[in-house]
């Protein structure tokens, strides 16, 4: 990956005071600052404008900027809170905060619901679930017959759709997660607890900036 020409912390678009970000997220101030190192790395990997574009997000996830993936698209869209096609620093830190091991479980459950509510109707519909299963199978080069896919989706709906109206609402989703807590396992990134170890270069680069 490339490297930004700009080293000034304040030039990052959407840059926010680490104290404020730390007060609104499960991160400490030094973790927020360490995340800035990661953000700078990601946000200048293709387009050096200090913002994370979808291609840069894909590059970071898959080592391939052109790789299309339904789930990566959804994550990016949820990170892009302002819906302007890019993820700025504040959006990045706040969104990643949901994945922190100490983040509120309710927030994780809600985030996962929004992620799977592909068309943002307020419900996870049967068609959406099937679309996600097919996308996962395609991504994994797994071939299952349509009958088997239908069986998987049916079984999940029998488990989740308590009201039997053919769609899963937030309340039903919460009940499902209560029954199967592993469903939100991917909403926690253990790495986020050791972020300052992962990006110790922050300490060095901030000292350099002070001298400049």
């Amino acid at each position: 990956m490339g490297c930004c020409s700009s080293k000034k912390v304040g030039r990052t678009p959407g840059y926010e005071d680490p104290t404020i970000l730390a007060s609104e997220t499960p991160f400490t101030e030094s973790e927020v600052e360490a995340l800035h190192e990661l953000y700078k790395k990601l946000s200048c990997s293709i387009i050096d404008d200090g913002l994370i574009h979808k291609e840069e997000f894909q590059l970071a996830l898959f080592r391939n900027s052109k790789r299309k993936n339904l789930f990566a698209d959804r994550i990016f869209d949820l990170f892009d809170v302002k819906r302007n096609g890019v993820v700025d620093y504040g959006e990045f830190v706040r969104s990643l905060g949901v994945f922190h091991p100490n983040a509120n479980v309710e927030d994780k459950i809600n985030f996962a619901f929004r992620l799977y509510d592909l068309r943002q109707t307020g419900y996870i519909e049967r068609e959406e679930l099937k679309e996600m299963v097919l996308a996962l199978l395609h991504e994994s080069d797994l071939i299952l017959s349509d009958d088997v896919v239908e069986t998987i989706v049916d079984k999940t709906f029998r488990d989740a759709d308590l009201k039997g109206d053919g769609k899963i609402d937030q309340e039903e989703w919460k009940e499902l997660v209560k029954k199967h807590p592993t469903l939100i396992k991917n909403m926690t990134l253990p790495y986020l607890k050791d972020i300052t170890l992962a990006f110790p270069s922050f300490v060095l680069s901030s000292e350099v900036e002070d001298i400049e």
Binding site: N69, V148, I152, D159, Y191
Partner: peptide, 26 residues
């Protein structure tokens, strides 16, 4: 577990596109 016996959401959660841990790999 066989995909057939898995909850669809459990299956989906294994997607690489949902594995944000990759962002932290150097």
């Amino acid at each position: 577990a066989s995909p057939v016996t898995m909850n669809a959401f459990e299956l989906i959660s294994t997607s690489q596109g949902l594995n944000l841990g990759t962002l932290f790999e150097k």
